[in-house]
Nucleic acid binder design. Structure first.
Length: 269
DNA sequence: CTGAGATCCTGTCTGC
DNA sequence: TGCAGACAGGATCTCA
């Protein structure tokens, strides 16, 4: 579920905790993608939250000297609950407890992670990440440059977080559809013009999805922890054997890098 | 260095 | 209805 727009939506939903004091963190299950270190609990007691932000798909919660890094992995979610509400769901692995409310980390598959560090920009999981897709640095010339120097097909290239962050499996398919580029094309052979279209498409798709994240925020706030998938209108993802909205040709499902990939062979050349 | 493939984990859906 | 197997929105690690 959590690609960049979902993470961004989550950050916006919890940034009301800025300038509040985190009383304590309780880890119920430390066996996430990486073992959660003890200091996540010990060094975060009664810490003032200065800033809550996002880098790639990491949620960053800054204190005076430390920073919490939360990654939602494949199935992670955060929900807000009253502190005195003891409602507990299966796979609730961590609680971030404030005075009146708490943030609960739930993750069925446990591919998510929680780290505490002094400077996330220097953290091994973050320091080599590529550009933010919605920043100016993600430009036509940047795209041309990485395409020229890669032997990957274009879908793999845009999903590689070393190149550009935040584009997951759904948005990769959707962006390539919008840019009219076949996902299996070799990056090297994508034209300058197509690079420009692709950059624009990724920005458009992600922005649109963030906007629609509004519905997710609503669910996020509901105390019962309703999941509610975002209702972005998908043109190709998950629509194999259905018909293309633009040209009526059947949408094709293929596997690229072990991941399901959807495209219209008539629209995407 | 690059790129392909296995891998972590649980729940749900499909087909026999 | 039961059960095995495929598959799921991520990303690191190992190996050639």
């Amino acid at each position: 579920m959590p690609e960049l727009p979902e993470v961004e939506t989550t950050v916006r939903a919890i940034n009301k905790f800025e300038n509040r004091i985190l009383k304590e963190v309780i880890i119920h299950n430390k066996n996430l993608r990486w073992k959660v270190e003890k200091k996540v609990e010990t060094l975060t007691r009664n810490q003032l939250v200065h800033k809550i932000t996002r880098r790639a798909k990491y949620i960053l919660i800054y204190f005076d000297k430390q920073c919490l890094m939360v990654h939602l992995g494949m199935s992670g979610k955060l929900r807000i609950q009253k502190s005195n509400n003891n409602y507990f769901k299966k796979h609730d692995h961590a609680e971030f407890i404030f005075k009146d409310e708490k943030i609960i980390f739930n993750d069925v598959r446990r591919f998510g992670s929680i780290h505490l560090c002094e400077n996330p920009d220097k953290h091994r999981l973050i320091k080599d990440l590529g550009v933010e897709p919605l920043s100016k640095s993600f430009s036509k010339s940047y795209m041309k440059d990485i395409c020229k120097n890669s032997n990957l097909c274009i879908k793999k290239l845009i999903m590689d977080q070393k190149n550009v962050v935040g584009v997951g499996n759904i948005y990769a398919s959707e962006s390539l559809f919008l840019a009219k580029i076949n996902p299996s094309r070799l990056s090297k052979e994508v034209s300058d013009n197509e690079c420009e279209k692709l950059v624009k498409s990724i920005k458009i798709i992600l922005k649109k999805a963030i906007k629609m994240g509004g519905t997710t925020i609503k669910d996020f706030y509901s105390a019962d922890g309703n999941e509610g998938y975002f209702s972005l209108k998908l043109n190709v993802y998950g629509r194999d054997s259905m018909v293309c909205n633009k040209c009526n040709t059947k949408i094709i499902k293929s596997i690229i890098g072990q991941r399901a990939t959807y495209s219209c062979t008539k629209c995407q050349l």
